[in-house]
Write a protein that binds this DNA or RNA. Structure first.
Lengths: 203, 203
DNA sequence: ACAAAGTTGTAGACACTGACTACATGCGCG
DNA sequence: CGCGCATGTAGTCAGTGTCTACAACTTTGT
């Protein structure tokens, strides 16, 4: 929680708060302006369009996602790449579960302007973080024959799918299941095998 | 391609066509009415709200998804549950790639009214189809200790994540990768192991 | 057969949205 | 000081979803 100094930052913060409190549905330029105590046209002084404003929110989301993964992998042995990869999974879904609104926004190309350079930079950084983890894992024998970026893409997709479907409650009604961590454990079991060191979530 | 007999069916068909041609962005009640050659209020005579109309479109999407998976698994040996499961993966992403607009809509709870009974029924049927495949696979030794619905949820999530991120082009820029089938092959490799019978896509 | 009732489509209105414009205010800097 | 420029305001425009009144047509009961 950092204090909003400029109006620009306050707008991004207001949007973030709205997303996590009210969800992604009613978000809009005028609503953000209202909550920030500004006139309906004020945001356009700082962002040329609503999409750019939301792209800035999403970029901050990617930074938070990066940090969440960083925190998760810091709890396990630095010399165990497989454990770090498994921990990263929990960091990913933990961010999604903790900031569902922002997470939902980050992958909504119809809402946030994905052409925004900040969006691309932060998104790429988050993915790059995972690729590094994958490279380390490959170095200790985890599917060393596969292209790192592709392997990372598949692992990302798994966590992304789990988080997405969980938030959309598309699985819950039929599975009667809300424990996201349990599903991540299963996913890790499938991907990494039944190692006891990675079958439990960290910290 | 079946001929639209009632106005109601024509509206659903018009929305479908729009989604696959123009994407999900500009869809709306008035736009659908325009394309169907009706006045802007006509759709509300058949659907109480835009969300219900789109829910009907999504429900038809779930039926098509079901059919796509059915086609995919029909190409492999009926007595090989693992091969059928792997084939189902291709059926899933093939539908998503072939009908990106409808696929995107199906999991957008802010757009289509997920409380619609038809939506819930068809969505549940599609998931049930996967659960059956998983049960068969468990019977031949594929993680028999896990809860079928949870295991199915994880597998669904993986395919869902791959399709979602692929369509959002969120992975493409960093991975430089557009071959969805290749990613599915990797995902199957991770989940099912390196059996040559499932490492290639069917048909 | 004929009128009543229901169904279906139209047209207008309302509140709302994102974006654009003209205008006012206030700040920094030569 | 005074000129720019950045910032915020208010009004406007085209567009949206939804509601309502109304017209036309179809079905139904007697």
């Amino acid at each position: 929680m950092r204090v909003a100094v400029s109006t620009r930052d306050r707008l991004v913060d207001t949007a973030r708060t709205y997303l996590d409190e009210e969800g992604i549905d009613g978000i809009g330029l005028r609503e953000i302006a209202r909550r920030a105590g500004l006139s309906h046209g004020a945001p356009l002084r700082h962002f040329s369009t609503l999409g750019r404003l939301l792209a800035a929110v999403a970029a901050e989301g990617f930074r938070d996602l990066y940090a969440s993964v960083e925190v998760a992998i810091s709890t396990v042995d630095r010399a165990d790449p497989m454990a770090r990869l498994a921990a990263a999974s929990f960091g990913y879904v933990r961010f999604a579960a903790g900031s569902p609104g922002v997470f939902g926004l980050m992958f909504r190309s119809d809402l946030c302007d994905t052409g925004d350079p900040e969006y691309a930079t932060e998104g790429g950084a988050a993915f790059g973080q995972l690729v590094e983890l994958v490279v380390d894992a490959q170095a200790v024998g985890f599917h060393p024959d596969l292209v790192s970026a592709e392997l990372a893409g598949v692992l990302w997709s798994t966590m992304h799918g789990l988080a997405s479907l969980h938030l959309h409650a598309a699985l819950a009604p039929t599975t009667g299941q809300t424990d996201l961590d349990a599903l991540v454990r299963i996913a890790n079991l499938l991907a990494f095998g039944a190692s006891p060191t990675i079958s439990k979530e960290p910290s």
